[in-house]
Computed example of a mutant assay.
Amino acid sequence: MSTVTHIQSKSGFTRMDNDLYEALIGAELSGRELRVALAIHRQTAGYNLESACIAASYIAQMSGIRREDVSRAISELIRQGVIYRDGGSRSPIGFSPVSEWKIDKKNTHPNKPKEVPQCGVSDTSNVAFLPHNKDRNTNTNANALVVDASASTAGEEGRHGNGKAATPPDQAKAVRAEKIPYSRIVEIYNQTCGHALPQCLKLNDKRKTNIRGCWNLKINGVQPFRASEFWVAYFRDCLAVKHYVGDNDRSWKADIEFLTRESTVLKVLEAQQ
């Protein structure tokens, strides 16, 4: 008796290109990224389409993954060249040729623990948080630089008269300031928006205040702007707003100061819901 299960045409089926199938099997994607990729394939090839407009909320419903995590997985798949999207967050999605994939090396020594833990999942769109490293007496800042925890506490210990040398005030201030990576955020803005919007050449007090407001902004109990990935996704969404890129009667264009205002941030994020 044959053990082959024949496809029941009445229930439907989706064909997958063998090269794509084998590439997905061998790709070092995370479990969430793979599930999202399969959902995208189902909504494109499953309907004989090369690309399609697929809402993150719909993939979330299919996969059981939170919409915010779906958005982050889509961003990671685009960054690694697995899928493409022409335009903003509502544009059609499709699979790129396998030859163009550039998958991150997740762990080149599978039998050894990763020296740097990967980002934990956030609760908002397109964002991951740097994890707490409880096993080491260091703090990790948003630039992925490890800062000696003793540097930020030495000043306190010196003031309490425990015999240890206190950190000079200017040095302690510099350590605290580094917690908000202004230079990295400016770099992300210039790289993402510099071709369409005015480059940011200098941060004044107003711009720093706006960035600090974004950094501390809480949405659903989390602070999404504390990850580089979220800044990239946010600035890309801003570019999708025609008015911001000069499509208006004054040819006015937004700049980093405008895009980091709380009113602008909330308007752009709420439009993605």
Rank of each mutant, 00 (worst) to 15 (best):
A154Q: 11
T108H: 12
V121H: 12
N111A: 04
P117D: 02
N137S: 14
E156A: 13
N143T: 08
D148G: 05
S125I: 10
H132W: 13
D148I: 07
N133F: 10
D123I: 07
V127T: 15
V127W: 11
Q118N: 14
A142C: 08
S122Q: 00
N143L: 02
P110W: 11
N107A: 04
S125A: 12
A128N: 08
G120N: 09
T124A: 14
N137R: 14
L145W: 07
A151Q: 13
V116K: 09
A142S: 12
V146P: 00
P117I: 00
G120R: 11
D135N: 05
A142T: 02
K134C: 01
N141I: 05
G155L: 06
T140Q: 13
E115A: 14
K105I: 06
N111I: 01
Q118R: 09
H109D: 11
A154C: 04
T108G: 05
T153G: 06
T124V: 03
G155V: 03
K134D: 02
E115R: 14
H109M: 05
R136W: 01
T140Y: 14
K106G: 01
N111P: 03
V147E: 05
E156Y: 07
D123Q: 14
D135Y: 07
N139F: 15
N143M: 06
S150C: 07
K112M: 08
T153D: 06
K114S: 14
A144F: 12
K112C: 09
N141W: 08
S150R: 15
H109L: 08
A149S: 14
H109G: 01
H132C: 03
A128L: 10
S150T: 09
A142M: 08
L145R: 12
K134S: 03
T124G: 10
K114N: 11
